[in-house]
Design a protein around this nucleic acid. Structure first.
Length: 104
DNA sequence: AATGTGACTACCC
DNA sequence: AGGGTAGCCACAT
């Protein structure tokens, strides 16, 4: 087989499949993209997205149900706002109940 | 080829 | 529950 086209594109394509009001973990996305174990690579792919992208990058969170962006950063605030706008609830400790909101 | 890096994870206290 | 740590993968230098 040839080399994979562009891994970023494959990852973005998977992220685009996450429905509004649901979330997926980095590990979930990696597995769905055919890259099991490459959760960190998913973060790199999202980081490479342009600001004006339509890809719903905000629906990707870590395995602890938390936002992985730096605390207090603008992007972290944006991600939380978008998730809450879709009906996702954050616990008192800033965590999302994966059993309830994770795509399955 | 070797080393460093990170929007990550699973484990183990 | 929360913090530390060793793997992890693909890339960049």
């Amino acid at each position: 087989m040839n080399q994979e086209p562009d891994i970023n594109h494959r990852i973005w394509q998977v992220v685009a499949l996450i429905p509004a009001g649901k979330v997926a973990t980095y590990g979930d996305v990696a597995r769905m993209a055919g890259l099991p174990g490459a959760a960190r690579r998913v973060g790199a792919a999202l980081r490479a997205l342009p600001q004006n992208t339509r890809i719903p990058w905000h629906r990707v969170i870590n395995a602890q149900g938390r936002i992985s962006l730096p605390e207090g950063s603008r992007s972290q605030y944006t991600q939380r706002e978008r998730l809450e706008a879709e009906g996702i609830v954050f616990s008192r400790s800033n965590r999302i109940d994966l059993a309830r909101f994770r795509t399955h």
